[in-house]
Each structure stands twice: as C-alpha cells, then as structure tokens.
Amino acid sequence: MSFLRSAWYALPNLVRFVIRRLFVGLLLCLGITLVSFALTQVVPGDPVSANLGDRAASDPEIVAAFRARYGLDKPVPQQYLLYLERLVHGDLGESQQTKRPVTTDLAQYLPATIELATAAMILALVLGITLGVVAAIGRDRWPDQVIRVISLAGVSIPTFWLALVTFYIFFFKLGIAPGVGRLNPGGKAPPSITNMFTIDALLSGQWTTLGIAASHLVLPATVLAIYTVGSITRFTRAAMLESLSQDYVRAARAKGLPERTVILRHALRPALAAIVTVAGMAFGRMLSGTVLVESVFSWPGIGQYAYKSALALDLRAIMGVSLVVAAIYILVNMAVDIIYALIDPRIRLG
C-alpha cells in the first residue's frame, strides 16, 4: 500500500489531478445514467404509440414484438442493469427512430455540433475579449458606450430570431452566405476521420472542400456565438477594470513598460482567469443550446438529433445524448481548471 501511495505522489500534480478528476467524472456519468433513465421512466407518453403507427399500435402482436426488441417488457431495474452492462461494452443501445446503434448516430451528429460550437466559441472568445478590453480602456467614453450597446444586444436578442433574420439577409437578399447544411447540395464529404468536415478536409488536403465547409460554418457559428460574445465582453470589461486599478498595474507603468505590454501582460492576465471560467460554462450552454441554430441552418448536429429523439420518446437516444453531453461538460470543466492553474501560479492542482 505504501508503495502505491508513494508512487501516486511521485506523479506530477497535473497527472494526479487529471486522474482524480476523470475518476470523479466517471462516477458523475454513472449518476447521470441513473437520472436520465429514471426520467425516461416517469415522463408521460408511451414509446410504443410514439414510434408505431396507429394501425401497428393496435395490433398486440406487433406491440409485443416492439417491446421485446427494445427490452421494454422486462422489469425496470433489470432494464437499467442491462443498459449499464451494454454501456460498459460501449453499446448505448439501438435508436428506435433511426434503427441504428446510438453510438453510430452520435458519431455522425456529435462532430457536426462540436465543430459548430468550437468555431462559435473561438469567435466568441476573440471578439468578446477584444471588445471587453477596448471597452475597459475607453471606459465611459464612446468606445465603451458603443460596446455596451453591442453586448447588451448580444445577450438580449433571441438566438432563433437572429438565425432567421441573418439567414434571410445574407442568403436570400445579399447572396453572400452559402445555403443551409454543412456542404453545398450534392457536395461530397471529405474522408471520414473526425467527421468534423473542416478538420477532415484539412487533414486530407482537400482545399476546396475545406473552403466550402468553412464558409458554411461562418453564419451559424456567428449566430451561435452572439450571446456568448455579449456575456464574455461584459465579463472581460469588468475584470479588466478591476485589474487595471490594481497596484501592480501602476507599478508596471512606473517601470516604463509600453502601454501595450501593461495591458496585455499585466492587466489582461488576471482578467483571463475569470474569463476562462465564464467561457467554460458558455461552452456547455452552447452544446445544449445549438438546437435552434441547427434547425434554422439544417445543421445535422446533436441538437436536432436530441430534439427529434425527445419528440419520439426514443429513450436510448435521449440517454445517449445526455451521457455524451455530460461527459463533454465534465471534460471542459477539467480543462478550465487546468488552464486556470496555468494562468495563476497561486492555484495548485491536486
């Protein structure tokens, strides 16, 4: 035992931290399967009537076959244990909607959403931090006022409305934006590596496809980012004002450093710590909130998949989506904590 203990403490802090958090995350995921399973049991509605037509649902034989096929004829606790047993083998069950394994569906839809959300997140971080810093520097003067209006608009405009309006303007009226979907109609997808089309095209050197995929990404990613741009801008401004008033910033100025260095190194760095936390939460919200944007832009992502599954009471699909989104959320939060520790040496992981 003592050997194990000393081996454990010989590991670098970072590795120890990651192992511990992954273990906790695993337990959390287990809890999530329990909750989502319980919820699927208590929601009103019957998967049989949701999935079978009226004629089929009135035929007892077909209903019995349907229930047997999806294990709905067994007692509830046994259903859950069966689910867990399959889960350990990487099997999330079969979707009643698509008649395919849920893992196959997820492998197809999840990368599209991750691609969209990541693009949106990068955009939101770059824009939000830039605007926030500019607003803080020009405090109470016109840049600050203009940016305040922008960020307020960002957080108050409903996403689906913005999606419709921008699509109408940029596609129908101006013709700048490409149409819906991830590629042009009839466009050939790049070889499937990550199923994120931009990355796949980049990896396989298909530059035309890369351009098309990227151009299709711009508008939905921007729309999805707008809310987060607003909130990150406001957060950055507040955090920058806080750090700009600190003694160490005055000391940096007294050392005769150029204003750019004072702002980007001495003032922005403490502000970043706060921003990273906000950004981590925003990423989780983006993943779960893409459904509206995905619907408008016909983006075949996990939001649409979850929405359709929910309508059809497709239990296995719903549970699969919740589990995967939860896992991503846990990983993002872990990443946030690590980045936080990288920014601030006073934070100790472990």
Binding site: Q246, D247, Y248, A252, R269, P270, D344, P345, R346
Partner: peptide, 8 residues
C-alpha cells in the same frame, strides 16, 4: 500588491 501575482 505592487508585485504582479501571476508573473515570476
């Protein structure tokens, strides 16, 4: 407070 807490 005059020394930056996050810079070496």
């Amino acid at each position: 407070t005059a020394l930056h807490p996050m810079l070496s």
